[in-house]
Design a protein around this nucleic acid. Structure first.
Lengths: 202, 202
DNA sequence: GTCTATAAGGGGATAGAC
DNA sequence: GTCTATCCCCTTATAGAC
């Protein structure tokens, strides 16, 4: 065990921190273990000493990020004590906050999962938590004429999509970093209003 | 020039067709030129004979796909002859149709653009067509209390996001291929209804 | 135009000294 | 635990025969 102070991270944590950064930016395939080692300020051999292989290191980061993306939403959608409206508010505000701090998270996850060889996903137990959630039941009660999945996708889309489109929005000059952040804070309030309107539509 | 019949594609087109398939599925970095050659049923050397390098081939495909993604939307949003409601209908139905035929398109584009070295984007002239479009003006007139970008992102998000989330939805058992298609056809009508409700909200 | 063979280099992983 | 040096396969790209 290396010495640990309040200031310094352990070598293992330095490598993980660097791996988070590089993997998130470039994805699995485009990332070189040498990039991670350099970013961590350590030698390439140490990476293999601690994590055995690039893939094993990646899987750990992926697990982490996956939990981060779904950890926000699952407890909110499953809480039988809150109303439909409250859930939407909590999802919008909670998610947007997390994504402002981790803007690459959604596109990273959705892209890596798309690849057929994505053994990452195999390891993750996907209960049907969301489909059977309190939120879905409440949607069914409120509007039995529309498949509740349609509402779910729309609310998640309104919340998450801006972060997926962000790089293109920046490049196209549609926004800049500061404006984007302001827009996202505004959305915390807009999405609940719009969701309400959608639920009452027609 | 190779002989061309009605049935056979030229070698160049066979390579491009294979490249579309493999690049779209795996992205630039995870794709090996050998995969493309094999998929095309030709020799690896021919790929370089026709396209000089993996990167040049990729750039051609990227250009194509980029145009496909924006070609649908730009003419619709810029048509001064149509109403706001009509534009939403056309975007929803047109986009969903294209995406049902090319479900990987959005995640491919958004992911490749995210990478900083994405020289692809440099080559593409990003006029501020969308920001200055007829659609944006109509939004401003209708609701001067909300930034029109907020509506734009929401409508695009409701349309495009399901396709980005599709692999995860399939894996989680939330839907299967057939149900997904049905849901997307339903959305062609739902999105205009919801957009109307959002525009009238509060 | 199309092939086989091979050059040239990149990148993951390990051996072995300290 | 950490380093340097190195192995070795894989991948892109080209040379050169047909």
């Amino acid at each position: 065990m290396p010495k640990m102070s309040n200031i310094e991270q352990s070598t293992e944590e330095k490598i993980k921190e660097a791996a988070r950064k590089v993997f998130m930016r470039k994805g699995f395939s485009a990332t070189r273990t040498r990039d991670i080692a350099e970013e961590a300020g350590i030698n390439l051999a140490l990476l293999n000493y601690y994590f055995r292989s690039k893939k094993k290191l990646f899987d750990e980061i992926m697990q982490e990020k996956f939990k981060k993306l779904f950890g926000v939403i699952v407890p909110i959608l499953n809480d039988t004590a809150t109303s439909l409206e409250t859930k939407v508010e909590l999802v919008a505000s909670g998610y947007i906050q997390v994504l402002l701090e981790n803007p690459d998270l959604p596109i990273f996850i959705f892209n890596e999962i798309r690849k057929e060889d994505s053994s990452i996903v195999q390891n993750i137990k996907f209960d049907k938590i969301i489909v059977n959630s309190s939120f879905m039941n409440q949607l069914k009660e409120r509007r039995n004429d529309v498949n509740p999945i349609q509402f779910l996708i729309s609310i998640l889309g309104m919340t998450i999509f801006p972060f997926i489109a962000k790089p293109m929005m920046l490049f196209s000059g549609m926004t800049n970093e500061e404006t984007f952040t302001v827009l996202m804070h505004e959305r915390k309030e807009l999405i609940p209003i719009w969701a309400k309107a959608m639920l009452e539509s027609k």
